[in-house]
Amino acid sequence: MTSPVLKRKSDLLTEHERHEIEHWLKRYPPEQKRSAVLAALRAVMHTDGYLSTAKMDAVADYLSLPPIAVYEVANFYSMYELDPQAAAKYSISICTNVSCMLCGSDQIVEHIEAKLGVKIGERTPDRKFFLKNEEECLAACASAPMMQVNHVYYTNLTPEKVDEILDGLE
């Protein structure tokens, strides 16, 4: 029996995550720690690729929030993934909203599904790619069809261009 100190839920957060949260906390008044919840969850997303309940509890503990307040935020924004199956190096969102659809986004979806061997909502076995379920309009209608890979927009897609983009990813 070495350490008598009980573990806190926030002990789960990595050094990097804490650093990131602290960085954002500086921008808000001390009694408004809740304001940093989006940034905190984003930091966790970066390390884990998804938000586990344990990590959300850790964020809640760190920011002195009731856990449900963190669950609510995490469930509200589609950019946060809650399923461990969604954790991949590259998360691909293909816009299939009206403008993109009219410009052939269905073909792009078909092509990517065939190329990666997974359907929308699935992840490649090597955890490199995750095909995210249909996003709403990603606001790049002028350059439809388009897709978003992690934080980068790729526009005016053709099957060839998609091959080039995906093959170019490490």
């Binding site: 309940t53 009731p66 856990p67 449900i68 307040a69 669950y71 609510e72 469930n75 509200f76």
Partner: peptide, 20 residues
């Protein structure tokens, strides 16, 4: 004084639950 229930999800999928 303890928030245990919350609204999870959004739009027409929003549901009141404890989540865990």
């Amino acid at each position: 004084g303890i928030r245990e229930l919350g609204g999870i999800g959004r739009g027409d999928r929003m549901a009141i639950t404890t989540y865990v």
